[in-house]
Amino acid sequence: MFEVHQQDGKARLGSLQLAHGVVQTPIFMPVGTVGSVKTMVPEDLNKLNAEIILGNTYHLYLRPGMEVIREFGGLHRFIRWDKPILTDSGGFQIFSLNNQRRIDETGAHFQSHIDGRKISLTPELAVEIQETLGADIHMVLDECTPFPATYEQARESMQRSMRWAKRSRDARNRPELWQFGIVQGSMYEDLRRESIEKLTDIGFEGYSIGGLSVGEPKPDMRRIAQFCCEYLPENKPRYMMGVGTPLDIIESIAVGVDMFDCVMPTRNGRNGTLFTSNGRVNIKNSKFRLSQDPLDPNCSCYTCQTFSLSYLRHLFMAQEYTALRLLSLHNLTYYLKLIHDIRGAIREGRFQELLAHHRGLWET
C-alpha cells in the first residue's frame, strides 16, 4: 500500500508498505547493481539508514545466475539484506549495448558482455527473473528510447514498450511483489500522455518515468518530469529512474516525484568528486595537500569526522582502495541526509525555502 501523508505544494511525504518493510518517501535508493553497493557492505548501509537498495536484472541474470539465487531462496538472503529491494528490468543496460543488441516485438536479443553467449530477454523472462530474485518492487521490460529521437521513432518505441508492459503484467505470478510500469515517449508530451493512459489502463502498483537522464538538456528533463506528474495517478508512487544530481532530485520532488536512484554518489566518490554542504569538492585539487580541515564540517559521516582533506587527497592520489570506500561513504551519507532534510522541510512547510537554497548552491 502507498499512502501520501502530507504535501507542501506538490512535494509529497508518503510511505510504501512492501514485503520486506516500510519505506518512507521521498526516497533515494543506493544502487547495488550486482547485489552490492560498490565498496559498501550491508552494515554500512544500515548505519546510514538506507531503507531500500536497487539491483539490476540484466547483471544478476548473467552473474551469478538464477540457479545460485534459487539455491538461496532469493536475492535478500544471498546478499544478507533484510530490507526492501527494487530491481530494474535491464532495459537501460540493453539500451547501452548499442550495436551488440537487436530489439523486435518478442524482446531484446544480445550477447553477454561476460562470455559472449546469445541471450533473448522477453518481458515474460524479465518478470520471471525478478520474481526469482524476490524484489519487493520490479520494473516491466521496456525499450529505453535514445535521445535525440524523431517523433516516429519515439512513438514506435513507446508503443512497443506499452505492449511489453501488458505482457509483463499478464506474466506476473507473485502479487505480494509490486510491479511498476514505465512511462516512455521521449521529449514529446502527447506520447508521454498516451503512455500514461495505456499504463494506467493496465494498472500497476506504481509508475516510473523512464527515458530521462539519457543526454537530454536539463530543461527538457524537468519539463517532462513535471508533465508526467500532472497525469500520473496521485495515489500511486512515482519513480524517476536514474536521476540524479542533488538539484535534479530536489527539482523533481518539487513537481511530485517520490523515488530516485542513481550511481552518482558512489561513482563520483570513486572518481574523487564529492557532494558537500558547501557544493562540489574535487579531492584531487592541490589546494588540499596540506589542509587539516574535514571534507565537510557539517557532515557526521565517519570520513568527515575522522580524516583531513590532506589525508583523503593522499589516499586518492596514491590510488589506495581505502579512498574509494571513504569517499563513497561520504557521498552516500550526503544523499541520504539530503532526503531526510527534504522530508523535514515538507513536514514543516518550508520546502520552497530548501529548494531556493539548493538552487543557489548547485546552479552557481
Results as ranks from 00 to 15, higher is better:
G116D: 09
G116M: 06
I119R: 02
S120D: 11
S120T: 14
S120I: 08
L121T: 02
L121A: 02
T122W: 03
P123F: 07
P123T: 04
E124A: 07
L125T: 07
A126L: 05
A126I: 00
A126M: 07
V127K: 00
V127A: 07
Q130A: 12
E131C: 01
L133E: 04
L133W: 05
G134V: 01
D136M: 00
D136Y: 08
I137S: 07
I137G: 03
M139I: 12
M139S: 13
V140E: 08
D142G: 04
D142S: 08
E143H: 11
E143W: 09
E143Y: 10
C144V: 15
C144H: 06
C144E: 14
T145H: 03
P146Y: 15
P146C: 09
F147M: 03
F147G: 00
A149G: 03
T150F: 10
T150M: 06
T150Y: 05
T150E: 06
Y151D: 10
E152I: 13
E152S: 15
Q153C: 08
Q153G: 11
A154S: 14
A154D: 08
E156H: 06
E156R: 10
M158W: 11
M158A: 14
M158T: 10
Q159T: 01
Q159G: 00
R160M: 12
R160H: 07
S161M: 06
S161R: 04
M162C: 08
R163M: 07
W164P: 00
A165N: 05
A165F: 10
K166Y: 14
K166V: 06
K166M: 10
S168E: 12
S168W: 12
S168R: 05
R169S: 15
R169C: 04
R169G: 05
D170I: 10
D170T: 09
A171C: 13
R172G: 02
R174P: 00
R174M: 12
R174S: 13
R174I: 12
P175F: 13
P175E: 14
W178K: 12
W178C: 10
Q179E: 15
F180H: 04
G181E: 13
G181L: 07
I182P: 00
I182G: 03
I182H: 06
I182R: 01
V183W: 05
V183P: 01
V183L: 11
Q184M: 06
Q184A: 10
Q184E: 14
G185M: 05
S186K: 00
S186C: 09
M187R: 02
M187A: 01
M187L: 06
E189M: 07
E189L: 13
D190L: 12
R192H: 06
E194T: 11
S195C: 04
I196W: 08
E197Q: 13
E197H: 13
E197T: 08
K198Q: 15
T200V: 14
T200R: 07
T200F: 13
I202D: 08
I202T: 02
G203E: 10
G203T: 04
F204V: 01
F204M: 06
E205T: 05
E205G: 06
E205R: 05
G206E: 09
G206M: 05
G206N: 08
G206F: 13
Y207L: 04
S208N: 11
I209N: 09
G210H: 11
G210Y: 09
G210E: 11
G211S: 07
G211K: 02
S213H: 03
V214M: 10
V214T: 08
G215W: 14
E216Q: 10
E216F: 13
P217R: 14
